[in-house]
Structure formats: structure tokens, C-alpha cells
């Protein structure tokens, strides 16, 4: 199998319980249509999916770790966005 013939696709599944698509892995397929079929066969055998996205891996653009200082840090001084910021009594601390 040449990389040309069967490019790599990344697979994202939204399960019944969740609201967001989660990345679950990748596979090789000839085109998007076949990628969807293979994703269904590989990643939803246990009823894990109501929605499948497949994206050609080459189309994914990612940020670099080295971007963090300017890219992420300004967000990091707002700890009230994190659940751990809030102290609750033990009896209700299961959220």
C-alpha cells in the first residue's frame, strides 16, 4: 500500500453520552467515503458512536508546543475556570 493510494485519515467520534467529538485514532482509506465506512467498522462496534468525522491527516494544522508562552499563558492566570479552584463540602464534592 503506497501512501498515495491510501492516505491516512484521523477519526473523531461523538458517542451517545458526550457532546464533543473525540479523537480515537487513525486509519488508511482511499477517500473520505471509504474512511467513514472503515471508521464505522473499527470504532463503533460497541455502539460507541452517533457521529463520525474523518479528516485527512494532512489537512490537520496543529499549534506547536513552543507557541505556549504567547498562545496559552494569558489563559492560565484565570484559575476560576478550573473546577479544582472551588472547594465544596465532601458530601457534594462529586461534580
Amino acid at each position: 500500500m503506497t501512501t498515495e493510494a491510501m492516505p491516512l485519515f484521523e477519526v473523531f467520534i461523538r458517542s451517545k453520552r458526550g457532546l464533543d467529538h473525540r479523537h480515537v485514532g487513525s486509519l488508511h482509506a482511499q477517500d473520505h467515503r471509504q474512511a467513514l465506512e472503515y471508521a464505522r467498522d473499527t470504532y463503533t462496534r460497541r455502539g460507541e458512536g452517533v457521529s463520525i468525522w474523518v479528516v485527512a491527516s494532512r489537512d490537520i494544522v496543529a499549534s506547536q508546543e513552543s507557541d505556549s508562552a504567547s498562545f496559552y499563558d494569558p489563559l492560565d492566570d484565570k484559575p476560576y475556570r478550573h473546577a479544582t479552584f472551588y472547594k465544596l463540602p465532601d458530601a457534594v464534592d462529586n461534580m
Partner: peptide, 11 residues
């Protein structure tokens, strides 16, 4: 012929 087809045919 491919691992993906293994899964598909088994289904």
C-alpha cells in the same frame, strides 16, 4: 488485503 478490510469483512 488490508487491516481495515479485515474488520469490514468480519463485520
Amino acid at each position: 488485503p488490508t487491516l481495515e478490510e479485515e474488520l469490514a469483512l468480519a463485520n
